[in-house]
């Protein structure tokens, strides 16, 4: 599918939390991701599976006590070994992010226009009229035509849906090559959410950036993504084209997630027993084995790597082919 070199390549990303030299948790345990240019990749999984912290690692905004190893290649440049100063240059420029809750992501005491101007000043050195022109253009791109009023507004004066549009406009100010969306519609009403998703896809089509979409909603993945990576306990357990993964999931965890949705059919819902472990340090073998309907003895000893089940579809399960 992606013959051109990937825009973003994450190889064996490991993240450890340490407290005074002692490792207290390992929230990411060897994540592999790849996003081609103009591609929309969905990252799904339940709370505490390591989705957001992976995004933080890509952006370079990990908390102080976290240590990341492995490789994160963005546009051919390894990021983890870069000094913080150089990574900060990319943030909000070539890579930018849209957060889940538009209501709290803006500073409440500054006008929205001023918050957007700061981005352009930081990354492009633009001020005054030149900056205003770009901001107005981006705002009308996201469907906010009364640009003057939006720029003069404080965050609390706009609805959640409008604020999310402003945040998208702000993320696109410097024409990023990769846009990270962290649960962009979870805090919104369904009809507003649909508009936002449509908007993102339209902009992605027009401007040609790549998208990393973090969500727990498989419906959103189906609606928007080319490919999907399913995360469980800090590892990618299944990845492939969104259609294939959702229609014929091969990993028992993905199967569980799809089966747990209350769909059209009714009847008893298939739920996954138990819960995501709170700490991933002591995990031996496959992390999902304890909750898996198909676990065999080997599952508790071997932690499987991703293996292809078709040319584009990969599963990290020793019984992946047969289930």
């Amino acid at each position: 599918m992606t013959t051109a070199p990937a825009l973003l390549q994450v190889r064996d990303l490991q993240i450890e939390f340490t407290d005074r030299g002692r490792v207290t948790n390992r929230p990411v345990r060897g994540v592999q991701l790849e996003i081609g240019s103009r591609e929309v990749l969905g990252v799904v999984g339940e709370t505490g599976c390591g989705k957001s912290i992976t995004a933080n690692a890509i952006l370079g905004t990990l908390p102080e006590q976290a240590r990341a190893t492995g490789r994160i290649e963005f546009a051919g440049v390894e990021q983890l070994s870069l000094p913080e100063r150089e990574r900060a240059v990319n943030r909000g420029d070539a890579i930018s992010i849209v957060f889940q809750n538009p209501g709290t992501a803006f500073n409440p005491v500054f006008r929205l226009g001023n918050q957007m101007r700061m981005v352009l000043r930081r990354h492009r050195g633009l001020r005054g009229r030149a900056a205003t022109a770009i901001i107005a253009e981006r705002l009308s791109d996201v469907g906010l035509t009364d640009t003057q009023r939006v720029m003069n507004a404080y965050p609390h004066e706009l609805s959640g849906g409008m604020l999310q549009r402003v945040m998208i406009a702000m993320a696109l100010l410097c024409e990023p090559r990769l846009l990270i969306l962290d649960e962009p519609t979870t805090a919104l009403d369904v009809t507003v959410a649909r508009q936002i998703l449509l908007l993102i896809l339209r902009l992605q089509h027009a401007l040609g950036f790549s998208v990393l979409l973090i969500t727990h909603d498989l419906g959103v993945v189906k609606a928007t993504c080319d490919r999907v990576a399913v995360l469980y306990a800090g590892r990618v357990v299944e990845t492939g084209p969104a259609d294939a993964v959702l229609k014929t999931p091969k990993h028992p965890y993905t199967q569980g997630l799809v089966g747990a949705l209350p769909g059209q059919s009714g009847g008893r819902l298939r739920s996954i027993e138990g819960q995501v472990p709170a700490n991933f340090l002591g995990i031996q073998g496959c992390a999902f084995a304890d909750r898996c309907y198909a676990a065999i003895d080997t599952c508790r000893q071997v932690d499987p790597d991703l293996r292809p089940v078709s040319t584009t579809h990969e599963v990290a399960c020793i019984r992946g082919g047969e289930l």
């Binding site: 369904v190 649909r194 998703l197 419906g219 959103v220 189906k222 609606a223 928007t224 949705l261 769909g263």
Partner: peptide, 9 residues
Amino acid sequence: CPTVESDSL
């Protein structure tokens, strides 16, 4: 309401 069964947007 996006569902797994519906078409891509």
